[in-house]
Design a protein around this nucleic acid. Structure first.
Length: 827
RNA sequence: GCCGAAGUGGCGGAACUGGCAGACGCACGCGACUCAAAAUCGCGCGAGGUCACCCCUCAUGUGGGUUCGAUUCCCACCUUCGGCACCA
């Protein structure tokens, strides 16, 4: 093969060239087309942090390959991109460097936009959104008002993480370990008036919806189920005669109720003060409560189980026994009723507590096969059969739970209850860089929503965001002081901004009509495009973003603004790109590989090809400098092969196979690869094996060209070149477009149809049969498909390595798998 | 502690429903081209035995099991990674 006179492959020249042309042609812009099947592909929008690295590139390339493939398969593909632009990092950077959050964010978006263009991803750039722009957050505020109108947004006083140094509230995830992520100060629990969304009202629907999402990873659904934490049980009361009160408890194990030997109260239980009146233990209890109050809930969960006797007894509603009440550190007031019936024999925690405080352990449930069982060294927490439980003895746990519940309900002291771990979503943030909450406080009318025609409530550019003066907007009089929309009298605005997760809970709908000034999105557009068919993003958003977005979507479905009640049909969590040292890529480790430096050196197509080839999309893999060099080498080989035989693409030969079996073999290779990629990209998405298949096809084509001087005149070879370029196009869009143009094609390679495979090319006259003796591979023969067992056996006996194993032994049986294998069992 | 995922050459990985373990690539070695190097191309490349060739044995974290046959299914254990962790 002559390689002379072929221009060198120069990605640095052709990549910007095609990016410019695609942009000028608006080649990737889409619109609704009822005649075609839609496909909405989305990657989670990035936070506007400023710089993209090869991990982002992997994520977006994966989406791009699937989107381009779908487009070539005839789908009308929506593939947009945007920026999650509000948030604390912008404010932190502002405080640190003295730049304004808006300027910092804008500069970052400009840089990231440049880098995203550079990646060659086929986004519809006319739809880009910036969640910090007034055109966008106007609708975030509008959606807040929708929630408010529906009674799903409310304000209440609640304990939150407060950093005394930064003078601000922190989200749970920013106060991990009980310290402020920014300054390391220990956070305090503080009661603050906060805005919440009533996510708990949707708890059951959020749970049930997961069962209708077969396209989601099981582990993400499990995480959401755990987070929602639905549990069914019974709430019933214990009377406290001495205090003339009663204490309500929740349990899922009513079958163990006869084993109650104490009641455990949360230290901040509302009834506690009443129990302590005239109680000789009061001093001790108060000292204990004060000690615990100094700890956050998180710290409490990490301590050993402590408690003091409360000085009073309750009356067991079924046995009438006196049950001591203890105040403990292991019961939390925020779940259930803040009081727990203590059953040491059948609960790990109660057992541990009872053990250290010398409380009775009363076994009331025994394993079915061990009636004399006694919980001595460890509790028995499984279901079993009841004993020492009065009239309920002999019932199974399941039956007992039902029967005892009926009894309590009948007597009017109990009711069936469902509890959730899920709590309402706290959306207030005392920060500057977020969307202001569109509510006005009027001395006459209380909380008054800002009328929709007055949106957006603009974030003032000038605000003292020092990070130490509390909420910055509080200190901007021109913002705070306003008039009541209802009476026109003087009033004050809410100075909190909204959690940025609100911005990202609906952005995928804004993409559908990003410039609409009358509505957050056009209903028709939503009913055409939604839901998102394929959502790609990291698993770190398993609960937060994905739960919030599902909540929003269900509310919007109730409003008939979207066509269904689940926003993301298929969810895919891609793996990370690790550093070359197999460690997580991070600035502090100094192993971050940037997009620009990589593109300059190897080209974007090589980056894309390497990242899709290095491993299956869901697993982590390390960066490899030699690996990407290998991708460049592969592209170089494609370049030379195609240009050497460019005439075969320019004027495809029509002559039938000229080289007999070589052509048939090549044809088989071509069509099997087309079939493999077609099935794989559409379904399992193991793009690494797709690229391996393309490399094999490249090897086969090169070998053919090497052996046949007149390769360019073979119709089969020409078809192979064509298939190679078309199938490589989603992976390496620039080089394929350039080759396509040089082949004299008038249309973009990316608007061509995906090649079709021919079943007849996959049928072979001879196929390999594996011959085993006693299950071990001893040889291979070639025979026609559909050969009989006897025919294969006859042929197999002639294979020396097989006959050597058969020598002198009796054939006991043979196992024959049609078109595949013959196993001869001898002994 | 509980739940889940994963362990395959020097490295990334392949083998999709049990049927030729190591596709494809990287690294490495040898050779061709070259004054030389780079680039490129060709050949080799799990371990051991025998080595002229054929071939044989062992090998998919460890130990068992099911099966004619196990990287694949089952049981136990080890390691790694993720999630949950007093939710009554």
């Amino acid at each position: 093969m002559k390689t002379a006179h072929i221009s060198p492959y120069e990605p640095q020249a052709i990549e910007p060239k095609w990016q410019r042309i695609w942009e000028e042609r608006c080649q990737n812009d889409v619109r609704e087309d009822p005649a075609r099947q839609k496909f909405y592909l989305l990657e989670m929008l990035p936070y506007a942090s400023g710089d993209l690295h090869v991990g982002h590139a992997r994520n977006y390339t994966l989406g791009d390959v699937i989107a381009r493939f779908r487009r070539m398969r005839g789908f009308n593909v929506m593939h947009p991109m945007g920026f999650d632009a509000f948030g604390l990092p912008a404010e932190a950077a502002a405080i640190q460097r003295g730049t304004h959050p808006q300027d910092w964010t804008e500069a970052n978006i400009a840089n990231m936009t440049r880098q995203l263009h550079r990646l060659g991803v086929a986004y519809d750039w006319s739809r880009v959104v910036d969640t910090s722009s007034p055109e966008y957050y106007r609708w975030t505020q509008w959606l807040f008002l929708l929630m408010y109108r529906k009674g799903l947004a409310y304000k209440k006083e609640a304990p939150v993480n407060w950093c005394p140094f930064d003078q601000t509230i922190l989200a749970n995830e920013q106060a991990e370990g009980g310290v402020c992520w920014r300054c390391g100060t220990r956070v305090e629990q503080r009661l603050v008036n906060q805005w919440f969304f009533k996510t708990t009202a949707y708890a059951d629907r959020l749970l049930e919806g997961l069962d209708r999402l077969p396209g989601w990873p099981e582990r993400i659904k499990t995480m959401q189920r755990n987070w929602i934490g639905r549990s069914e049980g019974v709430t019933f009361s214990f009377d406290i005669p001495a205090a003339n009160a009663s204490i309500s408890t929740f349990t899922t194990r009513l079958d163990t109720v006869y084993g109650v030997t104490f009641i455990a109260l949360a230290p901040d239980h509302p009834l506690l003060e009443r129990l302590l009146e005239g109680n000789e233990h009061a001093v001790q209890v108060r000292r204990f409560v004060a000690e615990i109050a100094g700890k956050t809930e998180l710290e409490r969960t990490q301590m050993e189980k402590l408690g003091v006797f409360g000085g009073v007894h309750a009356r067991h509603p079924l046995t009438g026994e006196r049950v001591p009440i203890w105040v403990t550190n292991y019961v939390v007031s925020s779940y259930g009723t803040g009081a727990v019936m203590g059953v040491p024999a059948h609960d790990e925690r109660d057992f541990e507590f009872a053990h250290t405080h010398n409380i009775d352990v009363k076994t009331v449930v025994v394993p079915p096969n061990d009636p004399s069982f006694v919980a001595r060294d460890m509790p028995y927490v499984d279901d079993g059969v009841l004993t020492r439980s009065g009239e309920f003895d002999g019932l199974t746990s399941a039956d007992a739970r039902r029967t005892i519940a009926e009894e309590l309900i009948e007597r009017g002291i109990g009711e069936e209850t469902i509890n959730y771990k899920l709590r309402d979503w706290l959306i207030s943030r005392q920060r500057y860089w977020g969307a202001p909450i569109p509510i006005v406080n009027c001395p006459e009318h209380g909380l008054v929503p800002v009328p929709e025609d007055q949106l957006p409530v603009l974030l003032p550019y000038d605000a003292p965001f020092t990070g130490t003066q509390g909420s910055p907007l509080e200190n901007v009089p021109s913002f705070v002081n306003t008039t009541c929309p209802q009476c026109g009298g003087p009033a004050k605005r809410e100075t909190d901004t909204m959690d940025t997760f609100m911005c990202s809970s609906w952005y995928f709908l804004r993409y559908l009509s990003p410039h609409d000034a009358r509505a957050p999105w056009e209903r028709d557009a939503a009913f055409y495009w939604a839901p998102v068919d394929h959502y790609i993003g990291g698993a770190e958003h398993a609960v937060m973003h994905l739960m919030y977005a599902r909540f929003f979507y269900k509310v919007l479905h109730d409003e008939n603004m979207v066509p269904a009640d689940e926003p993301f049909t298929r969810l895919f969590n891609q793996g990370f790109v690790l550093g070359e040292n197999h460690e997580k890529m991070s600035k502090s480790r100094g192993n971050v590989i940037g997009i620009d430096e990589t593109a300059d050196r190897y080209g974007i197509d090589a980056l894309r090809l390497f990242e899709m080839f290095a491993g299956p999309p869901e697993t982590d893999y390390p960066w490899s400098t030699t690996g990407i060099a290998g991708a460049t080498r592969t592209l170089n080989r494609v370049w030379r092969l195609v240009l050497t035989h460019i005439n075969a693409l320019r004027n495809p030969p029509t002559a039938a196979a000229a080289n007999g079996s070589a052509d048939a073999d090549l044809r088989y290779s071509i069509h099997s690869k087309i079939k493999q990629l077609t099935d794989e990209i559409g379904d399992r998405m193991h793009l690494n094996t797709c690229i391996a298949a393309l490399m094999t096809l490249l090897n086969d084509l090169e070998a053919y060209a090497e052996r046949h001087e007149d390769a360019s005149k073979s119709a089969t070879f020409a078809a192979g070149l064509r298939a190679l370029v078309l199938m490589l196009a989603p992976f390496a869009p620039h080089i394929t477009e350039e080759l396509w143009e040089r082949a004299g094609q008038m249309r973009s390679v990316h608007l061509e149809a995906w090649p079709a495979y021919d079943e007849s090319a996959l049928a072979r006259s001879l196929i390999p049969y594996v011959i085993q003796v006693n299950g071990r591979h001893r040889g291979t023969i070639e025979a026609p498909p559909g050969s009989s067992q006897d025919a294969v056996l006859e042929r197999a006996k002639d294979v020396p390595t097989v006959s050597a194993q058969l020598g002198g032994k009796t054939v006991r049986k043979t196992i024959f798998v049609k078109d595949k294998l013959l196993n001869i069992v001898v002994g």
